[in-house]
Structure formats: structure tokens, C-alpha cells
Nucleic acid binder design. Structure first.
Length: 560
RNA sequence: UGGGGCGUCGUCAAGCGGUAAGACACAGGAUUUUGGUUCCUGCAUUCGGAGGUUCGAAUCCUCCCGCCCCAGCCA
């Protein structure tokens, strides 16, 4: 698979690695991993981690594993695993043959647990969840030791084996590390290492009824895979002492080192897995790949490219500051990428009929249109022109404000790629709405400037009524309108009911009747659109809005 | 409140004792058969605050203030 070229910025993680390289730690090796739990689809926040981990591996000529961190059977599934594999690949990264599952280590992890018991540093505790919590103490008070804390190694070994064999009820026993119930860091107050959970695991089925906790499984999985730099998000900083505690006891030689960075937040949206699951399960969206979702698959379906997402991840940087990235930066990265690659096309969202009175009836001519104004190598296409056209309703105003650069009574405009036309008259219906306008065209301006050098009011796009293809266009606005991060907890109340507007009665030029699903276009003056991966059908295309072109006209109108 | 982190432009983010990069956003202007693109220009005398060390501090020290994370048998 092609490895993308993303810029290699400097950041504190690279400083740490450089230092290791200098001192010879890990013998010059760099091994990272991307370890999602398969309990949902990955989103733009995961993409940051994917780009970081795989980017580091590539930059330092190392490796990056894809590991499914599936130690809690609840909510995990093969569908999620498949989506993760698909999405990381699509983002442009390759883990070679290094696809791993924490669940493949269950037997080894069990062995590590036994070893810890033998060292007298883990014990089986009969306290239930509530009792464990009570014994844990609080931020200000130390915890109290479990009455089961000082069982003999033999008893612990026996009990732990029986836990595995299914002798005890769910939640009745746990395996705990024997550390320090008075530790100021609550993570170190005899953390639970194994719990009993009779829930089928999507890979191991009912083979196990005890499952290792994250803190036990993750560091040891890293060690088993010879990871050198275990990069995770800031909320795990409190867990690092435990990570080291476990690894120091059970692993000899070079040990992985945990390094934390700030997770991504993006304005106006929500990236919490819990909340995204809720959106899908309660059908607020049409699925994980709904184009309004901040998931990788949603963005792909919406028309964002992997390159744009990678560019974004490189642009935001990696640091330890809590951050809230302006969604405008994401959209900038998408626009920048699409501007290069998206062929231009004309589309009328809201048609207004225009009759060119002095153009012969039953006549058609073809205009050759550049697919990209700055890139002749992208070729041309033919656009049929005839006497009856559709233009965008917004492109005509009977009584235009100053600065309006489009068609109006008494004015001339350029029809993009074709003639200059001049307003002649209009037709209204009984309600007083303009339903049709009549214009004349200047044959001498066929893709040429007027001979007399006169300037026209602007350039608008059009489509031949007879040849145009009807299309459905979906305008996606932001799914949320969360005003600031502190309001995020009430996320459902900020769902934007207008986040999806379906426009029917739209027309696209005939060259788009076979638009390839997934292909992006720039509809001139309207924005970037993507032929919908799922709903687009030849002959009647469905387009999703990717991002809008800057709406300068709207901005001017706002100003005055 | 105990512990762990973090505070540099509206938003990200470089900077690591030698006198505040860059990007987005924003504001002007030029070019343009997309109000797009491109291209110029402007945008932190100041780095959470107050003291101190120093010829010199965003960078070192002290105190203070603010924000985030931790009391799941989630990850």
C-alpha cells in the first residue's frame, strides 16, 4: 500500500525519540502501535493518533502495529474491527502483517497474572464493586486494605484458577494488584487486574469468563509486541505509574514507555465514542458512516479525501495543551485538497428558466469547458447549449442591491464558458413570483471578450434545460451547533435539525449523469460536492455537499 | 480537597537565557469567464499574574491565579 507523504513536524514526542536514538535506548528501534477498542467506528480524533503513530514509524524507519484492544467483550464486534481496518487503510497506512488482537494474548496475560500472584504482588479479592469503591477512599482520604489482601500465594493461585473455571459469580471476585491503598494516586490503590464477566467475546466466544483490565492488558500487550513508544492520550497520565509498575515486574530487558498527548477536540462537534454510539443507536443519524458524522467513514462518504485528513492532522500539531480546533481549519484542509483535484462542473440547485429569445429554436451547440481553470491537463468536457436554460434562482434579482454582481433588469452577465446574455423581460405568476426571464445573447461573445471592451456584471453558471440531468443534492450543515465546549455535555439539545437538507428538482450538466460514486466535483460557485457513495445511481445522481465555497456574497450582504 | 497535567495572537502552535516562527481565522488591495483559485499587505513591544536572579527572561527561581484529568469489576 502506498505510504503517504505527510510533513514531519517537530513535537515533544519526536524530541523524546531523538533523545532515545542519541542515548541508544531501544537500540535505535522505533515501534509504535495504534490500539483502538473495537466498540465503534474511528473518528477524526482517532485519525490524529493514526497519523501520529504511523507517521512516527515511517519517519524513524520503524514499525507501527494495528492492535485491537478488545479486553472487554461488552460492545465489541467484528463489524467494528472490519470498519477500523478499512478506515485505517483508507487513511493511507499499512501495518504489514502486524495486525494484533489483545484477545490473542489472553492466555499469556493469564500467565503473567499467575506470575504476579506467585511474587506475592496480586491477590484475589472477594469484595464486590461497591465494597471495592468504599475501600478505595477518596481524593483526600487514604483507602483501607481489603480483608482479603493478605491471603497466601497458594490460596490466591487456587482462587484465581477457580475464577477462570467459572466457580464464582460475575462481580463476586477480582484479581487485584497489591500496591498501596494509601497511595496519593488513586490508580495505585490496589487496582483491579481481572474481573469475572460472563459475556460472550466476539472472538473468543465463551472460552473465557475472566477478562483482564486495560491497565493490565495494555502495557503487557505493548511489551509482547516489543513496542518502544506507547503513545496515548492525556487522561492516561494517571495510569502511567501502574503501567510501569506492571511492566517492571513482569518484563525484563527493554520496556515500552508510555507517552501522552492531548486528544483532539473540534469546535461545534462531539467526538466522544459514547455519544457517537448514542447518535447511531437512537437513529439520530443514518449510521456510523452518515456524512454528518465526524467518523472517518462519514467524512469519506461526504467526500473528504484521506490526504485532506492527513494534512489536517499534520496541521494541528501534537502537544499537551487542551485544545479546541476550529472546524474552519478542517474545512480549509479539505478545500485546499479538493481545489487541486476536483473537476469543475455546473449545477443548478434551484432552477430559474431563462429563454434566449434571439437564439434559434431546436438548435443546440456544444461548448468545450475546461475541467479545471488552472489545470489544462485535466481536460475538457462538452456542455450543450440551447434556447432554454436554467440558471440559479439566486443569480437573478429584480431589484438588486449595489454590489450585486449577477443578472438583473437592464444588465448583462457572462454565462460561464459561453455567451454574454442581456436581460430583456420577465414573466411572473399570479403570486408575483418570477417564473421565467427572457434574455438576448451576443453571438460575438462566444467564449470571447466583447469586441467593444465593455465589462459585464459577473459570471453565472447555467445548464441547458433540454439536456440537463435531474439530480438530488444533499446539503449537509453541521450536525451540532454546540456553542462552546462546556455545553458539550448537553450535546443532544444542540443537534441541528437542518443539518441535512435534501434538494430535489436540481439539475446538473449531462456530463454528470454517470458520476462515479465517491467522485468529488466543484460545482462552480456552489461549493464542493461528492457523488454519494451509497445513494448515487447512474442517470439520477445524488450529490453530497462536501464544503461550501466561501460565500462572499452572503458576507457582503451581512455587512450592509 | 490529595495526586497528576497544562497555561505563548480569536483558534492551533514553534520557541528550551540573546531580544515572539508558521498555519487557520480576520481585515485591506491586485489579478481572474467560478464573489473560487492565486498573489501581495496588515494582524502578540509581548508570552496567566506578581516578585526575584541576570548585561539580557516566554525560557531559570519563588509565590499566586486559572483550566483539564483521576474515586468503572470502561478504555
Amino acid at each position: 500500500m502506498e505510504q503517504p507523504t505527510t510533513p514531519a513536524p517537530t513535537d515533544f514526542i519526536r524530541d523524546i525519540i531523538d533523545e532515545h536514538l542519541r542515548t541508544g535506548k531501544h537500540a535505535g528501534r522505533v515501534a509504535t502501535r495504534f490500539p483502538p477498542e473495537p466498540n465503534g467506528y474511528i473518528h477524526i480524533g482517532h485519525a490524529k493518533s493514526v497519523c501520529l503513530n504511523f507517521g512516527l514509524a515511517r519517519q524513524y524507519n520503524g514499525t507501527c502495529n494495528l492492535r485491537l484492544d478488545d479486553t472487554d467483550p461488552a460492545g465489541e464486534s467484528m463489524e467494528y474491527v472490519e470498519s477500523i481496518i478499512r478506515d485505517v487503510r483508507w487513511l493511507g497506512f499499512d501495518w504489514g502483517d502486524r495486525l494484533f488482537y489483545a484477545s490473542d494474548y489472553f492466555e499469556k496475560l493469564y500467565g503473567f497474572a499467575v506470575e504476579l500472584i506467585k511474587r506475592g504482588e496480586a491477590y484475589v479479592c472477594d469484595l464486590n464493586a461497591d465494597e471495592v469503591r468504599e475501600h478505595r477512599g477518596s481524593f483526600t482520604e487514604p483507602g483501607t486494605e481489603s480483608p482479603y489482601r493478605n491471603r497466601s500465594v497458594e490460596e490466591n493461585l487456587d482462587l484465581f484458577a477457580r475464577m477462570r473455571q467459572g466457580e464464582f459469580a460475575d462481580g463476586s471476585h477480582t484479581l487485584r494488584a497489591k500496591i498501596d491503598m494509601a497511595a496519593p494516586n488513586i490508580v495505585m490503590r490496589d487496582p483491579v487486574l481481572y474481573r469475572i464477566k460472563r459475556e460472550p467475546h466476539y472472538r473468543t466466544g465463551d472460552q473465557w469468563i475472566i477478562y483482564p483490565m486495560y491497565d493490565f492488558a495494555h502495557c503487557l500487550s505493548d511489551a509482547l509486541e516489543n513496542i518502544t513508544h506507547s503513545i496515548c492520550t492525556l487522561e492516561f497520565e494517571n495510569n502511567r505509574p501502574l503501567y510501569d509498575w506492571i511492566v517492571e515486574r513482569l518484563i525484563s530487558g527493554n520496556r515500552p514507555q508510555q507517552i501522552e498527548f492531548a486528544r483532539l477536540s473540534v469546535s461545534y462537534t462531539v467526538l466522544s465514542k459514547r455519544r457517537l454510539i448514542e447518535l447511531v443507536q437512537k437513529n439520530y443519524v443514518r449510521g456510523w458512516d452518515d456524512p454528518r458524522m465526524p467518523t472517518v467513514s462519514g467524512m469519506r462518504r461526504r467526500g473528504y479525501t484521506a490526504e485532506a485528513i492527513r494534512k489536517f492532522c499534520a496541521e494541528i500539531g501534537v502537544a499537551k495543551n487542551d485544545n479546541l480546533i476550529d472546524v474552519a481549519l478542517l474545512e480549509y484542509c479539505v478545500r485546499e485538497d479538493l481545489n487541486e483535484r476536483a473537476p469543475r462542473a455546473m449545477c443548478i440547485l434551484n432552477p430559474l428558466k431563462v429563454v434566449i429569445d434571439n437564439y434559434p429554436e431546436n438548435s443546440t451547440e456544444q461548448f468545450e469547458c475546461a475541467n479545471h481553470p488552472q489545470k489544462p491537463e485535466m481536460g475538457t468536457r462538452q456542455a450543450p447549449f440551447s434556447r432554454v436554460l436554467y440558471i440559479e434562482r439566486d443569480d437573478f434579482l429584480e431589484d438588486p442591491p449595489k454590489k450585486y454582481n449577477r443578472l438583473a433588469p437592464g444588465r448583462e452577465v457572462r454565462l460561464r464558458n459561453s455567451f454574454i446574455i442581456k436581460f430583456e423581460s420577465l414573466v411572473k405568476n399570479e403570486k408575483g413570483e418570477v417564473v421565467e426571464i427572457h434574455c438576448s445573447y451576443d453571438p460575438a461573445t462566444r467564449n470571447a471578450p466583447p469586441a467593444d471592451g465593455r465589462k459585464v456584471q459577473g459570471v453565472i453558471h447555467w445548464v441547458s434545460a433540454e439536456h440537463a440531468v435531474s439530480a438530488e443534492v444533499r446539503l449537509y450543515d453541521r450536525l451540532f451547533t454546540i456553542p462552546d465546549p462546556s455545553a458539550e455535555s448537553e450535546f443532544l439539545q444542540y443537534l441541528n435539525p437542518d443539518s441535512l437538507k435534501v434538494l430535489t428538482g436540481c439539475f446538473v450538466e449531462s456530463s454528470l449523469k454517470d458520476a462515479k460514486p465517491g467522485a468529488q466535483y466543484q460545482f462552480e460557485r456552489l461549493g464542493y460536492f461528492c457523488a454519494d457513495e451509497k445513494d448515487c445511481q447512474p442517470g439520477k445522481p445524488v450529490f453530497n455537499r462536501v464544503v461550501a465555497l466561501r460565500d462572499s456574497w452572503a458576507k457582503m450582504a451581512d455587512k450592509k
